[in-house]
Design a protein around this nucleic acid. Structure first.
Lengths: 192, 192
DNA sequence: TTTATTTCTTCACTTAAGTGAACGAGTTAA
DNA sequence: TTAACTCGTTCACTTAAGTGAAGAAATAAA
């Protein structure tokens, strides 16, 4: 499991054995059960997450309704807005599946950065990459209809459609579960 | 005009006179006319923009139709995805109004970073902030209807509604110009 | 196993966005 | 000044998403 992390890091920087040991000594790995809520609205948090295995999701509760905004799966990283802004959280984070995640908090990352300066460089590269990815995602979402979004998802993250409950998927696509059902029925008809 | 930039930078780091001079010597300021296209689909670019005054927008052309995804106004910064990914651009950038913008390219920023190391720190802080802002924006967009998005815009960026053509605004809100007209008519009725 | 509960689908109906066309107001060009 | 164009609005019509209810299927709990 740790090798997954080191492979990931190697994409950005070269990492020595002793540096690996620094990371291991921090005890970052956590195993969390499906349904566990990692962050609730109103909470203060300094934690960032990195998914090694499984799936977590972010959502809001607006007018008593869950609005899912993102799914994070293998090798996805997530720093909730409330951590960066140092404000109480407006969103929830929970586990869609039993997952193995890496949890780091800001105080810790300062410690890592001092023992392991290259880590800082990696973080910057990584966050630049994230920013671009997010921008593209946003643009794609804005410029397409629910149906196109569903087709995009089928193409880019087909696994999600299998592993995530439909009503969460629907909300992720910006529609109600009933509309997603209809949309799928419509598409099947067209095919035949 | 340069003071606008220095004030902005001061929010992130303290900046000395000599450092200001390094920046000024780079000749970053450009004055661009309304309608000027700064970036076209297919182009390669290493340029980032910072708006001191005026308004620029990013858009895509899909099926011959313009899809506006963002407006950047005073003190907004923009690094197009193609610059980060080093791929040909998929989007266009053009000036909505006569504007004064700061144009920097990647080679230059390396030079700045070496002469002026604190700049790097600023960039990281700034890009973290951007990432969080973008995330919140995205979440807000996803969790609301066109009407709510319009109300949000009225609250958060009322100036945009005045300074930007309706059909660009509509596409920014994810709808057609006709629908925006209708939506506004509907809201006026409700008020009375 | 049986009972709840959650999840997904379907239906009828309402509401809002998409489409194509037409019109007037304002701007630009000839 | 006239003609061409762009822009915003309105209209009638189509299409798709929202809503509330109901039922089937799968999952979890007793």
């Amino acid at each position: 499991m740790q090798n997954l992390l080191f492979n990931f890091i190697s994409k950005y920087i070269t990492i020595a054995e002793e540096e690996k040991n620094v990371l291991v000594s921090l005890n970052l790995f956590h195993s969390v059960k499906k349904g566990t809520v990692l962050l609730k609205e109103g909470q203060h948090s300094k934690e960032s997450y990195f998914v090694l295995n499984g799936c977590i999701r972010t959502y809001y509760i607006l007018d008593g309704e869950e609005k899912t905004t993102a799914f994070y799966t293998e090798m996805d990283a997530l720093t909730p807005p409330c951590v960066i802004n140092q404000t109480p959280s407006e969103c929830y984070i929970s586990c869609v599946e039993d997952s193995i995640i890496l949890v780091s908090n800001e105080d810790m990352s300062e410690e890592v950065n001092s023992k392991f300066p290259k880590f800082d460089i990696m973080c910057r590269k990584f966050s630049e990459e994230l920013l671009a990815k997010q921008q593209i995602n946003f643009d794609e979402f804005k410029t397409s209809s629910p149906e196109q979004r569903y087709l995009n998802l089928l193409k880019n993250r087909p696994d999600l459609i299998q592993r995530v409950p439909q009503h969460q998927l629907a909300s992720f696509l910006g529609i109600k579960p009933q509309s997603l059902s209809r949309l799928r029925a419509r598409m099947l008809k067209k095919e035949s």
